[in-house]
Simulated assay, not measured.
Amino acid sequence: MTTKLDLRAELSVTKRKMDCTGVAAIAEWICDRPKQIPRLVELLWDDNVAVSNRAADVLERITREPSPALQRAVEALSGELIGLLEEARAAKLRWNLALTIPRLTLKGPECFRVAATLTGWLDGESSVVKTSALHGLADLARKEPSLITGVVDSLRMAERSGTPAMRARSRILLKELDSNRKKRQNRSSIHMFG
C-alpha cells in the first residue's frame, strides 16, 4: 500500500473486491501511521454503511495489540467512540465497537456507560452482536470490579439460554473471569508474616 492513500476510497471498494485481506492490509497500513486514526474514526459515521462497517473492522483489528502511539491516538477519541456506541444501529458496527471500546483505558463512569449500552444489546436480534457484547462486558468487568456480579449473571444466563455462539463464548469468558478472580485472591492472601 502506498504512503499516500485515500482511506475512504480504499474502504469503499465493493464487497466482491474487499475481502478480509483488504481490511487487514488497511489495518497494517494504519498501524504504521497513528496520525490517520482521526480520519479512520471519522469514517465510522460515513453515509455509506459499507465504509463505516469496514472502518470499524479496521479499528477493531488495530486495537488488538496496539503500539503505545496507536493506543494513545485511539484513546484520544474515546469520548467520540463511546457516543457512537450508544447510537450505532448497524450490526457489524456494533459488534466491532463492542470488542474495541472495552480495550481502551476508561474511567469508572465511562465503563458504566459502555456496560449499560452493551447490556441493552443482549436483548437484540443479532447473535454476533450479542456474543460480542458479552465479550466486551467481560473485558469491562476485568477493569471495573464493581461490574463483575452483573456481568457474571449475564454470562450465566447466556450460557443457559443463548445461541450456540453465546453459550460457547460465555463458558470461555466465565472460566477466564474465574481464573482472574483466583489469581487476585492468591495475591491478596500472601501475608508479610505468614
Rank of each mutant, 00 (worst) to 15 (best):
I30F: 12
C31T: 12
R33N: 14
K35A: 10
Q36Y: 06
I37F: 00
I37E: 01
P38A: 06
P38M: 02
R39Y: 09
R39H: 09
L40E: 00
L43D: 02
L44D: 02
W45G: 11
D46V: 04
R54C: 08
A55R: 04
V58G: 04
V58P: 01
L59C: 06
L59A: 02
L59I: 07
E60T: 14
E60R: 09
R61I: 12
R61C: 11
R61P: 07
I62W: 01
R64T: 07
E65W: 10
P66S: 09
P66K: 00
P66W: 00
P68N: 00
A69F: 09
R72C: 14
A73D: 05
E75M: 07
L77D: 01
L77E: 08
S78A: 15
G79L: 03
E80I: 07
L84P: 07
E86Y: 13
E87S: 05
E87Y: 15
A91P: 11
K92I: 08
L93R: 14
N96I: 00
L99G: 12
I101K: 00
P102H: 00
K107R: 10
G108C: 13
P109D: 03
P109I: 09
C111Q: 01
C111I: 02
F112P: 14
F112D: 11
A116Q: 09
G120M: 03
L122K: 06
D123N: 09
D123E: 15
G124C: 02
E125D: 11
E125W: 14
V129A: 13
V129I: 03
V129T: 11
S132K: 10
S132H: 05
L134R: 03
G136F: 00
L137H: 03
D139C: 10
D139I: 13
L140W: 02
A141L: 11
P145S: 10
S146V: 15
L147V: 05
I148Y: 12
I148V: 15
T149N: 12
S154G: 15
S154M: 10
R156F: 15
R156C: 06
M157Y: 12
M157T: 15
A158P: 14
E159F: 01
E159K: 13
S161V: 10
S161A: 13
G162F: 02
G162R: 01
T163Q: 10
P164I: 02
P164S: 03
A165K: 11
A165S: 06
M166P: 04
M166Y: 08
R169N: 09
